[in-house]
């Protein structure tokens, strides 16, 4: 059933924008330096103010988001899911996993660490584990990652982070000993207070069945 004419795999993923198929990406900066940067960009009054400001000027927001995409695509193979897990995955992006697994590697990792889908690439979760473990942050990987909001693709995760919309994306590492709740307690994903409020696409097929999709 394979089509007769097929573009070479490398060509289908030349640009970030053209990339529809996630594939593993080895981060370009060391985990140590990323954890340092992380300390500098934690949400505070300044960043919250900046994020609010950016959001009130759509053009500025788009520029900022484009810059974020540029930087993060290059560094992490970011595909702009808008709800960044990097701080708790050793700064290796789980969304670059072909199965977009947020809770750890699948069972198909080769003994040599190869991705099962792209055998010439290294499993991004091995990167995540080694990078986090090397910095004493392996426990981060024990956090249970809640399902993502698929409406947030294309948004700036920095803005969402500074606006505290990422809270509850994952549990505490200690939650592994109990049975944590599935629902996020802060952002409820109701389309009003969450990352979606600022979604670029206003067109919605509201869940009341009026609009056939």
């Amino acid at each position: 059933m394979t089509p007769a004419i097929q573009a070479p795999e490398s060509e289908s993923a030349d640009t970030a924008r053209g990339r529809r198929q996630p594939r593993p990406h080895s981060p370009r900066l060391s985990a140590r330096s990323m954890y340092r940067v992380q300390r500098l960009v934690r949400p505070n009054a300044f960043y919250r103010g900046l994020a609010a400001r950016l959001e009130s000027f759509p053009r500025l927001r788009r520029l900022f988001t484009a810059a974020e995409e540029r930087v993060k695509t290059d560094l992490f193979g970011c595909s702009m899911c808008g709800q960044c897990a990097l701080p708790v995955t050793g700064y290796a992006c789980p969304m670059s996993c072909p199965k977009q697994m947020r809770n750890g590697p699948c069972g198909g990792v080769g003994a040599d660490g190869a991705c099962e889908v792209y055998p010439d690439m290294r499993c991004v979760w091995l990167e995540a584990y080694e990078r986090a473990d090397g910095q004493g942050r392996a426990a981060d990987l024990n956090r249970l990652q809640r399902p993502i909001d698929q409406r947030a693709w294309g948004q700036s995760s920095w803005i969402n982070y500074w606006q505290s919309r990422d809270e509850g994306l994952w549990t505490d590492p200690g939650a592994i000993a109990v049975r944590p709740g599935l629902r996020r307690t802060t952002h409820q994903g109701d389309g009003r207070g969450g990352p979606v409020r600022r979604a670029r696409h206003k067109r919605r097929s509201d869940g009341d069945g009026q609009v056939p999709s």
Partner: peptide, 24 residues
């Protein structure tokens, strides 16, 4: 659920099962 005890990273495979057990 399923788990592969033989796939790397060896140090994380049991932990990953622990996550699944915590999940249910």
């Amino acid at each position: 659920a399923v788990e592969n005890p033989f796939a790397p990273p060896e140090g994380f495979r049991a932990q990953r099962l622990a996550k699944k057990v915590a999940a249910g």
